[in-house]
Design a protein around this nucleic acid. Sequence first.
DNA 1: GTGTTTGCAAACAATTTGCAGAATT
DNA 2: AATTCTGCAAATTGTTTGCAAACAC
Lengths: 131, 131
Amino acid sequence: MNLKHSRQRDSIKEFLATRKDHPTADVVYMGVRQSFPNISLGTVYRNLTLLADIGEIMRLRVGDGVDHFDYDTSPHYHFVCSQCGCVEDLKLPFNAGLTEEAKECFSGEIEGQMTYFYGCCADCTGEQMPV
Amino acid sequence: MNLKHSRQRDSIKEFLATRKDHPTADVVYMGVRQSFPNISLGTVYRNLTLLADIGEIMRLRVGDGVDHFDYDTSPHYHFVCSQCGCVEDLKLPFNAGLTEEAKECFSGEIEGQMTYFYGCCADCTGEQMPV
DNA sequence: GTGTTTGCAAACAATTTGCAGAATT
DNA sequence: AATTCTGCAAATTGTTTGCAAACAC
């Protein structure tokens, strides 16, 4: 299963590299269409899955039912706003020790952890106080 | 929006209370059908959502695309097997301090955290070594 | 030329919803 | 009697897949 070059895939990677908001497949689709007007959503999904599989990007499942994608593959924490659904990076240093602790108390093999924080982002806290 | 009693809802709660494997809506449906042969999947979904909303059960989104439900609503860690998809509790004490740290470095409001570990469970590690 | 990738549309899986009738208070 | 809840089926949403043509090597 050799990889062949594809301009669409490049375009998807480039787009993702410019974004820090962890876009969904649909948002990537919209964005890439600027430069590739007739790229199809299926192609976007196929390439995002492929890129995630070979480790060039990261698939984020933050519990809102939609997959988000991150160009930054290093382990780090995310925040998810329950109100607007936005996903942001946290500046908190990643605690890899927790994974080690988990390994020690578990009989199977632990490969990694996924942690995300949820609540109300700064923008939403300010605007929508009175509910 | 007053709650009325419903035997179906009771049955769903009872079923969930007996299980420690964090079943999906579909599994709950199968299980409750033993005692309620013509309960509908829609009713199961509606009640699971309702129970989760009022805090009597917990909805778990562990990244496999399917919602799992947990009768134990106290904060604790989960493990998800990438092979068989099973979800187990971890005996590791929950580190609430991490949430506090996150609060301090974030401008919005953090309400909680969700952490799950992934890898290969004990059963799968033993059986499916040669891939 | 062989094999991968694309666009399109149809298929799929999980979940939600509209509605008329049944159950609860 | 008023209102919530149920069963059913249809609708929605996010994602995957089959296929013939297009592209990359």
